[in-house]
């Protein structure tokens, strides 16, 4: 695991989307039952997830298969991930927290002018070194390309499938409906209609999490994969 960065200062919270994603990540990791490992090149994700994964008394049931939480996957993570997966037995899981790089206007997210809440730097930071020394053909190909420091979700899932990890469940946070209602709430708030803004916010909130087939447009996506066979 990479060194844990300092968490956010007290009173500075991730935005709602990231809070939900981090908590859901912890719930899925603990539901899996085994000890959780964390890999992420994003210091903010490391800071927020590390203590969530360590903070529970259920740090892993005895003899349960491990789960790897791979948050904001990047090229540079591939050697470490591949090395860990080599030692993962059947039944173990990889949980991917994928942040879609979007310039879409999402109230409460970084880069928008309507922030009234402290926000996370996550979706802004796309840096990461390229490291070609990875295990597995697909990983090597990705690592040596040197074109994109970050990975696409499809590429990650294909690579994991080559390692024997199949998708079990997928969750989207902040899909198109959420963003539409949030934008509308923001606009009518600017027009001074607080009552309408609150109703639109309530609708946005009801659409915060989306089902598996509609995660394509989500700002954040969680995918649970499990190794069924070697």
């Amino acid at each position: 695991m990479r060194p844990v960065s300092d968490p956010l200062p007290p009173g500075v919270l991730p935005d709602l989307l990231h809070q939900t994603a981090f908590n859901l990540c912890a719930v899925l990791a603990y539901s899996w039952g085994g000890p959780a490992r964390l890999v992420s090149g994003n210091p903010f994700y490391v800071a927020e997830l590390a203590w969530r994964l360590e903070g529970s008394p259920r740090k892993g049931r005895k003899n349960s298969p491990p789960v790897l939480v791979w948050a904001d996957p990047r090229m540079a993570d591939l050697p470490e991930v591949a090395d860990l997966l080599e030692r993962f037995p059947p039944g173990s899981a990889v949980l991917i927290l994928f942040a879609r790089r979007t310039r879409a206007f999402v109230p409460g997210m970084p880069g928008t002018s309507c922030n009234t809440q402290p926000v996370s730097p996550a979706a802004q930071d796309a840096s990461g070194a390229v490291d070609g020394a990875v295990h597995g053909e697909r990983a090597r190909r990705l690592g040596e390309s040197g074109v994109r420091p970050t990975l696409r979700l499809r590429e990650i899932l294909d690579w994991l499938a080559e390692q024997g990890f199949c998708e079990e469940a997928r969750y989207g946070i902040g899909g198109s409906a959420y963003r539409s209602w949030s934008r509308l709430a923001y606009l009518v708030e600017r027009l001074g209609q607080a009552d309408h803004a609150d109703r639109f916010r309530a609708r946005a909130r009801a659409a915060l999490l989306v089902e598996s087939r509609r995660t394509v447009t989500s700002v954040l996506t969680l995918v649970l994969t499990a190794r069924r066979d070697r």
Partner: peptide
Amino acid sequence: GTSWARLIPGSGRKRGV
């Protein structure tokens, strides 16, 4: 007494979350 709710993996496939 536990710190996180429990989620049954796989149920999200059929019904979302």
